[in-house]
């Protein structure tokens, strides 16, 4: 069995066969890996557990802090704010933000996370998923399926464009994660495969051009909070798609645009820590404090 090469192909296959996107992904994985369906399912359950553990760890007690002191403890701040204030965005939205930030704080603190699709963007999917668990009373099975659906779209993005900040900027990481989460949220909410593709197109379109400009080259600032945007953008996109809004530019073409933008992006804005926020006076000061002198490169 071959992998689905485009989102259009994936959606057409699901629509024609009248099966869910997650089911197609499971079937493809079983066929391509030579593993049993039970083994494939269990492996995804283990990833789900790792994601749940990271969300919990980042939101418990005082939270977690990175070695550099640049990030940490802010998921807990949000948790306290949610408990004591009438938030502007609404509690479910902030729950997604808290889950996303908790995960990326654990990542920055060199804790265990599940890369979805990358470690830098590892908060976006759990941000959405564990909020939907409560909002939609998702079953364990639906949560595992959410990850298969997200993975099906992620594979197509990764093979047709890129998912690394060093090759495509943050649009390739948080942008891809947000698109994947939006599509999976649509399936979890009972939407059609075509709506899932629209959600991806909407979410990714909204983050096109996003650069990768980490302070001191560390996956901390602004990465942790960009996952908050990845998660909330996914929810907004999923709702728009479920309401019948369309992106007009098809999902595969949005992925193509993301690839071209990534190729046109200067190296300073692709995970080198040399441009954007990393090149601000404060960013440079932080880098000097952490690493000291500038380095000389050998040729």
């Amino acid at each position: 069995m071959q992998s689905y090469a485009t989102i259009a192909e994936l959606v057409a296959a699901a629509t024609t066969a009248n099966v869910s996107l997650s089911e197609l992904m499971i079937q493809q994985e079983v066929a391509n890996s030579g593993s049993s369906r039970a083994a494939v399912w269990t492996a995804m359950e283990q990833n789900l557990s790792a994601m749940a553990a990271a969300v919990k760890r980042g939101s418990t007690g005082a939270g977690v802090f990175s070695k550099t002191g640049l990030t940490g403890g802010e998921a807990v701040k949000l948790k306290q704010y949610r408990a004591t204030h009438h938030s502007l965005a609404g509690d479910v939205m902030l729950m997604a933000v808290q889950n996303a930030i908790a995960t990326n704080e654990v990542n920055a603190a060199m804790g265990v996370v599940c890369a979805t699709p990358t470690a830098g963007s590892s908060g976006t999917l759990p941000g959405v998923l564990f909020m939907l668990q409560q909002r939609l009373q998702l079953t364990h099975e639906q949560m595992v399926r959410f990850l298969f659906t997200a993975g099906a779209f992620g594979m197509i993005i990764a093979n047709n464009a890129m998912i690394a900040g060093a090759t495509g900027g943050c649009q390739a990481e948080v942008g891809s994660a947000s698109g994947m989460a939006a599509a999976a949220a649509v399936e979890a909410a009972g939407g059609t495969p075509a709506q899932a593709a629209e959600a991806l197109a909407l979410a990714l379109s909204n983050l096109l051009g996003l650069v990768c400009d980490p302070i001191a080259g560390l996956v901390e600032l602004p990465c942790v909070k960009r996952n908050a945007i990845g998660a909330t953008n996914a929810l907004v996109a999923a709702d728009m798609a479920l309401a019948g809004l369309t992106n007009k530019i098809p999902a595969d073409e949005v992925v193509g645009a993301m690839k071209r933008i990534g190729q046109q992006m200067p190296a300073a804005l692709r995970e080198t820590g040399r441009g954007g926020l990393a090149a601000t006076p404060t960013g440079i000061k932080m880098k000097m404090r952490i690493f000291g002198e500038e380095r000389n490169f050998e040729s």
Binding site: N47, C114, A115, A119, L125, G151
Partner: peptide, 19 residues
């Protein structure tokens, strides 16, 4: 280059950067 769903959802790893 990406052959498995677990190349996208995974690996479970020590942070901070998958690449």
């Amino acid at each position: 280059a990406y052959k498995s769903v677990f190349d996208i959802i995974g690996p479970v790893m020590i942070g901070p950067s998958s690449s």
